[in-house]
Amino acid sequence: MKKNVIYYFTLLVFFSYHHDSIAQNQDRNNSLVLNKATQKQLKEYDSFFVKNHKRHINELVELIAIPTMSMKPENKPELKKAADLLKDMLHTIGMENTEVNFTNELPVVTATYTRNKRQPTILFYGHFDVQPVNKERWKSDPFSAEIRDERLYGRGATDDKGPIIALISAIEGLIKVDGNLPVNIKLLLDGGEEMGSPHLPIWLASNQEWLSDIDFGVNVDAMMNNDNQGMMWKGLRGAADLEVTITSANTDLHSGIYGGVAPNAALAASKVIASLWNNDGSIAIKGFYDGLRQYSEKERKEIAAVVDQDQQAKDLREFGIDQWIGEREYSFYERPWIRTSVDITGFKAGYIQGKASIIP
């Protein structure tokens, strides 16, 4: 069933890290193999997910209903409400040591299930805060999840509340069906990722012992390639933000009097921005690509094989884009995955509430 695909993909992560013949191998990190679930297990998982599908969806709807915009100070109570909800969910399914901790007024939800020290321990990371909403662009209330054409629409449904609920549901299914988990796990659910997780370095530095036995990390803040194909990311690009302010005169000037003689800060900023890219969309900043890791042909072919031409064409139509941009010698996914990029995420200049005869 299509609705169970994301559950099964999460289960695959667990079995991918499970040991085989661990008792015969003292070096547990060298004995990791892919263990496939038996047909009996798959049938029992399917039965569990079908039976509990409506409840899992309702749990996601309940989480989406909490407006967890971490960058808005007035939403701090909502972040706590969501954190407490997740803590209760994790406790209910059998996770242990469930806690909510606040650092710099931002929450971190943690839980563990470490019953066999001879098995590896996997850290699962996700975030439950969301970006602000422009309600005019929504067909439905973004905080009242709505199902249309077998898709659930709501703020955070995919980024990242949906994957968190899928993870919790998969853990629950494994514990219910098998009575145990194939690996030890720890969960870290972040309440401030969308604003750069400014609290997380402090929390991590203060919890070194909690982190000390982790062998692998899995970030559930990702995506599926299409409705039937999940993706296991090997790595993610970092990010850096830069805010630039350009000024000309010490006040706005009347364009009827000073137009044509006074420098225009908005025009200067536009020229700077336009100079950052070549005509094909590649970055024109001298030396910007220097030092960037070069991937092998094998790795590049592996990435190119993931490209879904039908999905690309669908995205172009949906977003109203004529064509993709960037370095043509790299395939579609290579550009955002293993190359680097520069983007303008915001621009403000002059009077923006209507018309005004000014030179900013």
Rank of each mutant, 00 (worst) to 15 (best):
F332R: 14
F347G: 02
M71F: 08
E327H: 12
S255T: 09
S282Q: 06
P142T: 05
D343P: 00
G346S: 15
F9I: 08
S47V: 09
E194S: 02
L85R: 15
Q119A: 09
E78S: 12
Y330D: 09
K80C: 00
G230Q: 05
W324S: 13
I164Q: 01
S197V: 06
H56F: 11
R155W: 05
L85E: 00
E74P: 02
L123H: 04
A23L: 10
A157I: 06
V307I: 15
S296Y: 06
I325N: 06
P142F: 03
P120Q: 00
D215S: 11
G230S: 09
A83V: 09
G256Q: 08
M71L: 10
A166Q: 12
W203H: 01
Y113D: 00
A239P: 00
N29F: 11
K40T: 14
A170L: 04
H127S: 04
D27I: 07
F216W: 06
V109K: 02
A304T: 11
R137L: 13
Q294P: 00
I325D: 03
Q312R: 15
W203C: 04
L42D: 03
T112V: 10
G238V: 08
D46M: 02
G350N: 03
F143A: 03
G179F: 05
E297D: 15
K298I: 13
A166W: 01
G291H: 07
A304S: 14
G235P: 05
E297F: 08
V108P: 00
S21W: 05
A262W: 08
L204C: 02
K314E: 15
A274K: 13
L181T: 03
G192L: 05
I285N: 08
K54R: 14
G287H: 05
L276E: 06
Y8N: 14
V261E: 03
V183I: 12
L242T: 10
T92F: 06
A268P: 00
K186F: 03
F49Y: 11
S140L: 00
I285H: 07
D20K: 12
I168M: 09
S47H: 10
E99D: 15
L242W: 06
R328G: 12
D149I: 01
L63N: 03
Y153T: 05
V177P: 07
K51I: 04
S169C: 04
E136Q: 15
L204T: 01
I168N: 03
I283E: 03
D280C: 07
I246P: 05
N134E: 11
P336Y: 05
A274D: 14
L188R: 00
D149F: 07
P163N: 08
Q229H: 08
R339S: 04
V100N: 04
A111V: 01
G354R: 10
V100T: 13
N29W: 02
R137Y: 13
R55N: 14
A83K: 06
F124H: 01
V177N: 05
I164S: 04
D178L: 13
S270Q: 12
G260E: 10
P142N: 03
F9C: 07
I214T: 03
D149V: 02
A304N: 14
T121P: 02
F9T: 13
M223D: 07
A265C: 11
S16A: 12
P263L: 00
G256Y: 07
N29E: 00
K3A: 15
P182S: 02
T68L: 04
L60C: 04
A262I: 09
L123C: 04
M95R: 04
T68M: 02
V5G: 00
S275I: 04
I22R: 11
